[in-house]
Design a protein around this nucleic acid. Sequence first.
DNA 1: GCGCATCGTCGAAGCGATTCGACGTTCGAC
DNA 2: GTCGAACGTCGAATCGCTTCGACGATGCGC
Lengths: 333, 333
Amino acid sequence: MAKIEDVARHAGVAPSTVSYVLSGKRSITERTRQRVLRSIEVLGYQPHAGARALASNRSNVVALVVPLRTGIHVPVIMQFATSVVIAAREHDHDVLLLTQNEGVGGLRRVAGTSLVDAIIVMDVELRDERVSVLRDLRLPSVLIGFPADADGLTCIDLDFTAAGAACVDHLAELGHQRVALIGSPPEVYARGTGFATRTTAGFTDAAARHGIAASVHPCEATSAAAHRVVAELLREHPDLTGVVVHNEPLIGPVLAAFREAGRSVPDDLSVVAICPDELAEHAMPALTSVSIPAEEVGRQAVGLLMAKLAGTPVPDATLLDARLTARDSTRSR
Amino acid sequence: MAKIEDVARHAGVAPSTVSYVLSGKRSITERTRQRVLRSIEVLGYQPHAGARALASNRSNVVALVVPLRTGIHVPVIMQFATSVVIAAREHDHDVLLLTQNEGVGGLRRVAGTSLVDAIIVMDVELRDERVSVLRDLRLPSVLIGFPADADGLTCIDLDFTAAGAACVDHLAELGHQRVALIGSPPEVYARGTGFATRTTAGFTDAAARHGIAASVHPCEATSAAAHRVVAELLREHPDLTGVVVHNEPLIGPVLAAFREAGRSVPDDLSVVAICPDELAEHAMPALTSVSIPAEEVGRQAVGLLMAKLAGTPVPDATLLDARLTARDSTRSR
DNA sequence: GCGCATCGTCGAAGCGATTCGACGTTCGAC
DNA sequence: GTCGAACGTCGAATCGCTTCGACGATGCGC
């Protein structure tokens, strides 16, 4: 493996010059710059990551903590993780994967050993022990989701409150008088996961504002549970005409259950989903939805992190717009 | 941040002694060992990853290349990735996440900069350009899946041939005379992804061996496509009584389609799935299935990698047993 | 009681980059 | 024509750890 010294010798310059060519931190004559680049190419030189990290005090690696809990939709996580990796690469960084189960210790470890320069944490809960650790670590970090006490932390997420409200606004505009929200599994609410409770709040408040009846139904992510909830809804609220589903794996089963119960979407019932766009587009019928912009969140999270690494100040909270796209599952009455 | 020298001073020993306490590469008197450990704890010492990597020529990081293509079931990937991370941590390694889209360049980069010690590649295709690169890199690697030319490489996967066969064996034993396989989307076959073609082969061969009629149906992972395939099956093969589904997202929709077509599972039709156990258990009815042991594959892949890193010889190919679990979706005729 | 392994520890030499101060040139301003 | 600033390059120090050879002390066999 060629080292910087080899490159320097080959190009007839000092090692430091090679370093400056690579980093651009000092000006270099175009002529020697080209010569050095040529040598790098000829020798196939690739700087040693460890040496670089040691000397520069930067590893160019960011940690990504992904959840592995129940009740959260895996494809969304994956989409998000992927976009983080891609965005990080665009900023010349790599991504170290950490799982929830290493917990706080994992954060301390990767920070303490200088393995990573910064941390992204997904699926933050209202009361999250990692939050205080992150605050103590002197590494930049970005949280996906909002803890109860977000002071001094950088957080980003879809504006779920607005998302819940947007669904109701849409249904109210179409003239619906009673709506229901089929939400995340009970354990998710119990954990105090921000996105679930915020959606409910937005949903409930908007319904009140419009003066229409509303109810909230947490639901396990199984086909059986979906059928149960649907049966219950139809039984207890015969006047129900608008349904919001905020639980990705349930979308198919809920639609199927309505169909099997003899209710047609959108003729008898209007359905709005909060889910990634592809999911809404591929459903039958295509669903009116508020999209969960996982990719956008990932990209922006990395952007915030890089800004912090560069010392640029960033906003504490970033809420992404809730955009509702009308498709074929809602209709006015 | 405390360094090894601080620990050494605090414990009254040489830095090298601290290092040996940590690595165990030379014997140390229990008394000084304890003293050093104490100092480490008191000072909260954590070795600098970069310095360690530079000096030892080992980063203690393995790269994991995950696919981000269409037609592969995301939760399975995630399960697998998670188990890799956990297993790696048990061997004191971390995991660097790479995405397919960085391609061969990504492999060259992380290897060339000594960022990682070893590589795990998921979703290997029959003709995969990464394969030759991996062979050239002098880093240990493990492939999940089998390329056409696996010479000199370490591969591991579920024995999909056996899985396809096991499904047919089970149905044949129950007396079924015509079976169909609903498989991955066409593009997956087109790419030459090993697991899809191997399942089909096992399925077809077993059917021939049992002398029963069989057909194979690639299918997009959408509810609409599922309905289409089911309709086609019922129309073209009225004598069909056994169905194998090897396409996770389709399981729900296929069951729903049969139900809507007035066919009961398992009374009219027996269904066997090839999918993770939880999925089979949560379906309605619970599905007889050959499980995809993602976690097991992940753990073993890491095990193989660690063995290679330690210089222990490992088998070129590891095929995990296809275990069929009978549940409520199959019945004899 | 002597010589020889073995054991436990030390010191110093790397590992391969970055970075800072220094130093000779060049160029524009006066 | 001189002076100073800006520019381009170099050399050396440094980052924090591992590892190898050396060396005194200890234990064993004879």
